[in-house]
Design a protein around this nucleic acid. Structure first.
Ligand SMILES: [Zn+2]
Ligand SMILES: [Zn+2]
Ligand SMILES: [Zn+2]
Ligand SMILES: [Zn+2]
Lengths: 134, 134
DNA sequence: CTGAAACTGTTATGTTATAACAAATAATAA
DNA sequence: TTATTATTTGTTATAACATAACAGTTTCAG
């Protein structure tokens, strides 16, 4: 399961459908919302969506927002350069944006390292007001 | 709903029982695990636990771990000084630790601010290896 | 072709969280 | 005190999110 900037994988039928739904949405979708949108295209069961989502997340083409139980297409042009990504979630308009920043990545490692912890993966979700809503 | 270092609230019966369960656990518990532990003490329904947890989290006495759908007692001596807290979650032994750091707090604000976002609340959960397991 | 690996479809079930309503309790103020 | 208000509680039912288990199909390297 490589990262797609290096080897954009050939998606299977279900994976393509789910990815298309995420890209069209332009915002986070729950697995069940995706399922409802794809019933007309033949999907019938949650597992069909969850399995596709697992792969897409593994490829780095989509992200899971833990605090929302939802998924969003990766908007970073070539996937993430580092491994750490943060999301901003506007509490007014619901807009979700993705931030990837090498300096922040190292700050995060340093923070954890100071506590003797070796970070492999992170979930950073920030709530507040986006520029338009502030 | 003030923060408890300033005004330690008098907890209600259910809130006290749930808080006691969290403190005893010394690690994250799901709402349903708490419920099972407190059935012998008279609790019967998930809502009784969720309602207590909502209050405890509001008071700053407990935290919700979004990535685990679980709750943990706040171990910070007097609650958090700043508003931002990070958790480290060891993928080997399951240990969860709480980090509160003013510098990181400001770095997080700066990161978001650079994208025109005004952060009010954050979820930071870091996965990897704790010192003992590394 | 053939076998291994990945993907798919399906049913059933497990887990997490909230809606809606009624009753009891506690805090406040006249 | 007593009426008023707000909070907490109890209960049933249901919604929302996620995975187990099994069988069948497709893909593709050797
Ligand atoms: Zn991304
Ligand atoms: Zn907004
Ligand atoms: Zn804390
Ligand atoms: Zn460990």
């Amino acid at each position: 399961m490589e990262h797609f900037p290096h080897t954009p994988p050939n998606l299977t039928k279900n994976q393509s459908m789910v990815m298309a739904a995420l890209l069209k949405a332009n915002g986070p979708l729950s697995a069940y919302t995706i399922l409802d949108q794809l019933r007309s295209k033949g999907l019938r069961a949650p597992l069909q969506v969850y399995r596709a989502l697992d792969k897409l997340v593994g490829y780095g083409m989509a992200h899971r927002l833990e605090s929302m139980n939802a998924f969003i297409a990766c908007r970073h042009p070539d996937g993430e350069s580092g491994s750490m990504v943060a999301f901003t979630i506007c509490e007014s308009c619901g807009e979700v944006a993705e931030i990837s920043n090498d300096r922040f990545d190292s700050q995060l490692h340093k923070l954890a390292g100071g506590a003797g912890f070796n970070v492999k993966k992170s979930t950073v979700e920030l709530f507040g007001q986006c520029e338009a809503c502030a």
